[in-house]
Amino acid sequence: MRFKLAALAAVAGIMPAAASAQATMNHVAINVTDQARSVAYYEEAFGLSEIPAPLNAAPGHPRWMRLGNGVELHIQAIKVPFTPPPRIIHFALTVKDLDRVIAFLKRTNRTWTDYAGKVGEINRTRTDGVRQIFTQDPDGYWIEVNDAADRPPR
């Protein structure tokens, strides 16, 4: 995932419009109440694989999972309850087989919604044809799951 920052910076007056700055997504970090449960969820639901976390091999340190395209999910254990944010604050995962994810959610008695918040529905109204759902991980983080794998990058 790449984010073009030059236009935003130019609007904000930070740098001239002719400058070209880019930032590349490296990782997303989440705090969870049960690290092993969360790692298992992301493996089973989305097929993510765990990768070695450099420097932090001791229990309780972040566990890293490969999201793809060089981006990682860092799962950090916390000892206090977590209050999940509203659905509008989410991260998105693109999967090759959305039906497989939905089958997992059904099998494990987890819910999902469409964009409008209708439980058990799949958003099919996007003009680009991408199907998407929203679901929550075991700690309540909202995840948009879509099948935009064939859509060209922006």
Rank of each mutant, 00 (worst) to 15 (best):
Ile78His: 07
Ile78Asn: 13
Lys79Pro: 01
Lys79Glu: 15
Lys79Trp: 08
Pro81Gln: 11
Phe82Trp: 04
Phe82Gly: 00
Phe82Ser: 03
Thr83Pro: 05
Arg87His: 05
Arg87Cys: 07
Ile88His: 09
Phe91Asn: 00
Ala92Trp: 13
Ala92His: 01
Leu93Asp: 01
Leu93Ser: 08
Leu93Gln: 03
Thr94Phe: 04
Lys96Thr: 03
Asp97Pro: 09
Asp97Arg: 08
Asp97Phe: 02
Leu98Phe: 02
Asp99Lys: 03
Asp99Arg: 07
Arg100Ser: 00
Val101Asn: 10
Val101Ile: 11
Val101Gly: 05
Ala103Ile: 10
Phe104Gln: 05
Lys106Ile: 05
Arg107Pro: 10
Arg107Tyr: 15
Arg107Asn: 14
Arg107Val: 12
Thr108Phe: 06
Thr108Ala: 03
Thr108Trp: 00
Asn109Trp: 15
Thr111Met: 12
Trp112Leu: 06
Thr113Trp: 13
Asp114Pro: 14
Asp114Ile: 04
Asp114Gln: 10
Tyr115His: 12
Tyr115Asp: 13
Tyr115Ser: 13
Tyr115Trp: 14
Tyr115Cys: 06
Tyr115Ala: 10
Ala116Asp: 12
Ala116Asn: 13
Ala116Met: 06
Gly117Cys: 05
Gly117Val: 07
Gly117Ala: 07
Lys118Asn: 14
Val119Pro: 12
Val119Thr: 15
Val119Ser: 13
Glu121Met: 12
Glu121Thr: 11
Ile122Asn: 14
Ile122Gln: 06
Asn123Arg: 13
Asn123Pro: 12
